[in-house]
Structures are given as structure tokens and as C-alpha cells.
Computed example of a mutant assay.
Amino acid sequence: MAETKRVERPLSPHLQIYRPQITSISSILTRISGNGLIVAVVLAVWWLLAAATGDAYFATADAVVRSWFGKLVFLGSIWAVWYHYLAGLRHLYYDAGKGLDIPTAEKLGWACIIGSVVLTVLTVIIL
């Protein structure tokens, strides 16, 4: 049998020299916000099902929803809805063939992040 010669290749530098860019961060945040919304939906559905089940079970679910954890989940879901909405608008803009150059894409990424935080604060203040 022929012997195979092992080639010594350098290890991937990964994050040692690669700096995450705002475009990749915004893409990751879009996925995280979409998946994070699932947690809020599950909590809200559990609360509604508990309300239909009985008083004792509803008291437990209501205590969780009104706790710091429930408030944090719903605050995060407000941010996730706004971020996901703005990122969707950004992708519609990209689909039109506009904003694909690097400076514009970076500005749009920052606009999604900053805009979602501002809209979340406004939503909390108004509601």
C-alpha cells in the first residue's frame, strides 16, 4: 500500500485576526432575534393556556410572567420585533439592488441596531 504523506497546514486563524464586521453581526442578530421571539411566544401561549385551565395554574403562570424573568423576556421580545422589522426592511432594500456597497451596508446595519433600541425605548415609554 502506498503511504500517504501528511501535509502540514496552518490552523485557521479564526478570531485571532478576523474582526467581526457590522454586516455579519447584524446577520447574526437577525437570527438571534427571530429565535428569541419563540421564547416570548411560548411564554405568552403558556400564560393563555393557564388562564383557560384554572385559577391555581393561572396564578403560577401569571407569577412567572410578572416576575423579573417574564418582564425581561417581553422587553427582549419588543426589541426583537423592532430589530427583525428593521432588518426585514433593510433586506427589501438589498433585494432592490440598492445599498450593497460596503459603506452603505455598514450604515444600514448600525441603523437597524440603533433604531431598534430607540424604538424599544419609545415603545416602553408609550405603553
Rank of each mutant, 00 (worst) to 15 (best):
G109L: 01
P13K: 04
V7R: 08
S24K: 07
H91C: 01
T4W: 05
S12N: 09
Q16A: 12
S24H: 04
L48N: 14
G109H: 08
I38D: 00
W46L: 10
L89V: 10
Y85G: 12
G54S: 00
A105P: 08
L49G: 10
W79Y: 12
V117R: 02
V121L: 13
S77E: 04
S77V: 01
Y93N: 12
R6Y: 05
D55Q: 09
Y85H: 14
A52E: 11
G76V: 06
A50M: 00
A40D: 00
A50F: 02
Q16S: 02
R31N: 11
Q16N: 08
Q16K: 13
W82K: 15
S24Y: 03
T53H: 13
T30S: 01
A52D: 14
I78L: 14
P13R: 09
V7T: 07
A59S: 15
A80F: 06
A61N: 03
Y93T: 09
L49C: 05
T104Y: 04
A40L: 00
I113W: 02
L127N: 13
T30A: 03
T23Y: 05
E8F: 09
V45Y: 00
T104Q: 07
H91A: 09
A56H: 10
I114N: 06
T120A: 09
S26D: 02
D55H: 10
A50Q: 00
P13T: 03
L29D: 03
W46T: 07
G76C: 02
S33A: 15
I125K: 07
P13Y: 04
V121R: 13
Y83F: 07
T60E: 11
D101H: 14
I17K: 13
L43A: 10
T120C: 05
A61W: 07
W47Y: 13
A61G: 06
Y83D: 00
T53D: 15
I38E: 00
I22R: 01
V73Y: 06
V7M: 06
E3P: 07
G115W: 04
E3H: 14
K5T: 13
Y85T: 12
E3D: 06
L119E: 02
T123G: 04
V118R: 01
I25Q: 10
L49F: 11
K107H: 01
L122T: 09
V121A: 11
K71N: 15
R90W: 04
A63F: 06
T4C: 02
V42G: 02
A44C: 01
L48S: 10
A44R: 01
A96E: 07
L86S: 04
W79A: 05
N35E: 06
A52C: 06
E106N: 09
G54L: 01
A96Y: 13
P10V: 11
T53F: 15
A111F: 08
I17S: 15
A50Y: 00
I32Q: 12
K98D: 04
A96M: 07
M1W: 08
V39K: 00
K71T: 10
G109T: 04
I114A: 13
A96H: 14
G36V: 05
I32G: 03
E106M: 03
P103E: 09
